[in-house]
Amino acid sequence: MDTAIGTALAAAENGRVAGERAARRALAELPTDRVDFCQVFSSIEYEYDAVIAGISAVIGTDPPLIGCSTGEAFTEDDVTRGVVAVGLVASDTVRFFAGLGTGLSDDVSGTVREAVADLPSEVTGYPHMAAINLHDGLSGVGEELALVTQKQLGPQVRIAGGAATDDHHLEGTHVFHNDTVAEDAVALGLIAATERPVIAVEHGHEPLSEPFEVTRSDGSLVYELDGKPAFQVWKDAVRAQVREEFGVTVDTLDPTDQLLQRIMCEFEFGFDQGGRYKMRWPWIETDGGPLHFAVGIPEGTVMRVMHGHPDTQIESGRQTVRSAIERAGDVEMAGAFVYDCACRSIVLEDELPVAIDAMAIELDMPMVGFETYGEIGMGRKQFSGFHNATTVVLLLPK
C-alpha cells in the first residue's frame, strides 16, 4: 500500500470527545482502518491525557504517536484555535518509530540520548531517513537541541519539527509520546522510507537596519547592542516604520501591550548566513530590561533588525511549499507535516487563513500543522537548524 495521510480538526466540550472526533474524521480519509503513525496538536483548552485517550479509542495504542500543545492548528481545509488537529498515516513504503526524552533544559544531550535510545539506526529495505522533533517551546535550547539531535541520529537524517506553544501565555508547553504527556521534554518521530522525505524552510523577512554587534549578553538575554541598551537600539531602528504602518510611537507602548508583541514579531532580528538570514524572535518583559530570545545569543554576534510584512509572509509560506515540491523532483509525495511560526500568525492576524490556504492550494495534498514557538528544519551538511518566523514543510513520499 502506498502512503496515505488523513487529516482533521475537531472541537468539543472536552478533550476526549475532541480527540475521538478528530481521529475518526482523519481515519475516514484513509483507504484502510490500519494506522501506522499519528501526530497530534492539541489546544491548551483541553486536558492532554483525555485527548490522547480519545484518539487511542479510535486508532488503538499500537501506532507510534507524538504531538504537542498549541494555540492555533490547521489542515488543508481550515485553521483555528481551540481544536485538536490529527494527522494519521498508513503506509507500506514508510515506517515510523517514536521516542521521548525529559529534562531538556538541564541536559540537552542526555535528553536526546533518552529519546533516541529505542529508535533504530537503520531499517532494512527503507534506506531514507528523516525525523520529527517536537519539544518544550520554553526550554530556550532550540539551537543546541537541533544540533544534538542531528549528531545523535546521524548526518544522513533530515530533521523537521517545532517548539510546542501555549497560545502566547508563555507559562508552560507540553509534548506527547504515546500515552505520556511531558513538560521540559522532546518527542522524536523517526521516519524510514523507500524514497527520500523532503524538507524545506523559508521566511518572509527582509533587512531593515544596519548590522549591530551584541556587546553584552547572558545566555538568551541580550542587554546591549553596539554598547547601547538593546531594547532602545531596536526601538530606534523600527520607530519610523512602526509610525508609518501602525500609526503609533513605539516608545509609548508598554511591554505588556499586545500591539508591541505583534510589532516585535514583525520586526525580528536576523543573522546573516551568507545571503540568507536566520530569524530570531525577541520579546521584552520589563521596560528598560534585556531582550529575551528563545536561544542563547553569544557576545560578538552580529545581527540586523528585519521586517516581515503580511504580504511577504503569505508569499514565503507559498514559496516553502514550492521549494519542497521542487526538491521532490519526480518522486510523488503523499502529504505534508507543516511547522509554522506563531510569530507569523501574530503578524498576519486575520490573514492567517489566507496564508494557510495559499500553502494548501500550492500543495494540493493533505497537510496538518501548528503554530510553533520556533521551528527545526535541518538537512544534510547543515550546521544550524533552529529557526523563528519561518515555515518548515516535511513531505512524505507516496
Rank of each mutant, 00 (worst) to 15 (best):
A146Y: 03
E47M: 08
D49L: 15
I52G: 03
V295S: 12
H128R: 15
R158M: 15
E244P: 01
G140Y: 11
A115I: 01
D106C: 06
S91M: 07
F337P: 00
T75D: 05
F41N: 05
E114S: 10
D107R: 00
R304C: 00
L348G: 04
F41S: 06
T32W: 05
P310K: 09
A90L: 07
G374S: 03
V94Q: 08
I376T: 12
A336F: 05
S384Y: 15
I199F: 09
G71Y: 07
A12S: 10
E332G: 12
T390E: 09
D330Y: 06
E285S: 15
L291V: 12
S316I: 14
D107V: 01
R280N: 09
G189T: 01
V305P: 06
D118H: 12
A324S: 07
K278P: 00
V321A: 03
A23R: 08
G270S: 08
D330G: 12
H174V: 12
G377K: 04
S69I: 02
C341R: 03
I314N: 05
C265D: 09
E375V: 11
V233F: 02
E362L: 05
G67F: 04
I191C: 09
T111Y: 00
Y46G: 05
A358D: 11
R81H: 12
L259D: 06
V89I: 10
P63M: 12
R380F: 12
F231A: 13
E13H: 12
H168I: 13
S69L: 04
R322S: 10
G247F: 14
I297H: 07
D272W: 10
G125Y: 12
W283D: 11
Q152N: 07
G82Y: 06
A50T: 03
E183Q: 10
P64R: 02
A90V: 06
E299N: 02
Q273H: 14
V141P: 03
A130N: 10
G329H: 01
S345M: 06
E202W: 05
P397N: 08
G15A: 08
V198R: 01
V89K: 05
T165Q: 08
A131H: 02
P229R: 01
E268R: 10
V321T: 09
K381Y: 13
L190Q: 04
D62T: 14
G137M: 04
M306E: 02
P255S: 11
A50V: 04
V116G: 02
T93H: 15
A230Y: 01
R322P: 04
I66T: 12
N178A: 13
E195V: 15
D92T: 15
G82D: 13
I284M: 11
A115D: 00
L27E: 03
T3V: 04
I5D: 02
S69D: 14
I376A: 05
R113A: 11
E349P: 03
